[in-house]
Computed example of a mutant assay.
Amino acid sequence: MSPDQSASSSTVEELAVGVPGGELAVLRWPAAEPDAPVVLALHGITANGLAWELVARELAGRVTLLAPDLRGRAGSAGLGGPYGMDRHADDAALVLRQLAGGAGKVAVAGHSMGAFVTTRLAVRHPELVRRVVLVDGGVGFPLPAGTSTEALAELLGPALARLSMTFADMAAYRAFWRAHPAWSSLDEAAAEGYLVRDLTGQEPRLRSACVREAVEADGGQLLSDPQAAAAVRQLPCPAELLWAERGLLDDPQGVYDEQRLAAAGLAGLDLTLRQIKDSNHYSILMGQVGAPLVAERILAAAGLG
C-alpha cells in the first residue's frame, strides 16, 4: 500500500476481516446512532471500496456502511485466488458475520460486477440479506455468439489498460483518468481518494493495486458462464436495478437499455427497474446526479425510506 493509500474521509475506518487466504480490507462509515441499520456495498471489477464515498456522504450517518476492497483489489490485493462471484460472495458473507453479526438481515448494494456478487451473496446466504440494490449491473442478458474474455479489453477500455501501466507520480495518474471519457461527470473530490487508494509502489513506478489476474478471472466468468448471471432470477428477496442512461465510456449505449432488459427474462421477478437519467456507468455511483439517488434507494432498502 502506498503511503497515501488510506480512506480519504475522517469519518471512515479501515478494518480487516479474516477470509480464506488472509485478510480482506473493509472500509466502514459508522452510523450516527448505534442501532442504525447496516448496509454492505460491493464495488466494480477494477474498483475499490472508496467508489462508495460519495454515496456514503449522502447517507450522512443514517446507516453503517461497510465497503470491502474485493479480493485482488486495493487493500485486498494480497489475497490470491480462486476468484469468481461465489468466492467474492462468500468473502462478503464473512464481512457481515464478523462486522454486522447482530444486525440480522441487511440491505446490500452492488455496482457493476459488485451487483453480480450481490446476487450471489443473496442466493448463497439468504439469512444475511433483506433487500438488494443493483447499480448498473447484476442482470445478465444474451450476448452475441462467440463472446469471450477477449471482449473484456474492449468493454473496460482504459480501466483495464491501466493495469499494465506505470505512472511517474500521482499527477500522471490523475491525468490518465481525466482523459477517460466518463471522468468529467464524476465528483472530483470523491474521486481523488478513490484514485489514491488504487495506487501502489514507489515513484516513478506507481501502478494500480488492482490485480490483473483477478480482473481477467472475474471478467471471464461474467462473459462466459451463464450461471454467473442467473442469480438475479433466483433471488430470495426483493431487488431494485438502477441503470445508467449512458455507458462505460460515456457512450450513448448504456450497459442496459429497454431492449436488453426485455431480453433478460425478468418477467415475474420481484425486481424494480429504474433508469437514472444524465448518468453513465461511473457517474451513477460517483457523480452528483447519481450518488444521491443511489443513497435514497439504499435507505429505502434498509427500511428507512
Rank of each mutant, 00 (worst) to 15 (best):
S279H: 06
G287I: 05
A267V: 08
L271K: 01
P252Q: 14
D270C: 08
L293V: 06
D250C: 13
L235I: 12
G287S: 08
A295R: 05
A263L: 12
D250W: 10
W243Y: 15
Q288Y: 08
L269V: 08
A291F: 08
K277L: 14
A291Q: 04
G247E: 04
H281R: 09
D270E: 15
N280Q: 09
R260G: 00
Q275I: 02
G305I: 10
L273W: 05
Q275N: 10
G265C: 07
Q234L: 15
L304C: 12
A302T: 03
A264N: 11
A291N: 04
L261D: 02
K277D: 11
P292I: 03
D270F: 10
L285Y: 02
R297F: 03
Q259P: 01
A291V: 02
E245T: 10
L271I: 04
A267L: 13
A302K: 07
L266P: 00
A302W: 03
K277M: 12
L266E: 03
Y256A: 02
G287F: 05
P252F: 09
M286I: 11
A295H: 03
L299A: 01
L242W: 05
L304K: 13
L269G: 02
Y256N: 04
A300M: 13
A302Y: 06
L235E: 05
A295M: 13
R233D: 06
K277F: 09
G305F: 07
A267N: 13
S283H: 06
L242C: 01
L299W: 01
G305L: 09
G254W: 00
T272I: 11
P238T: 11
L285M: 12
D250F: 10
E296K: 15
P292K: 10
R233F: 05
Q259C: 08
L299G: 01
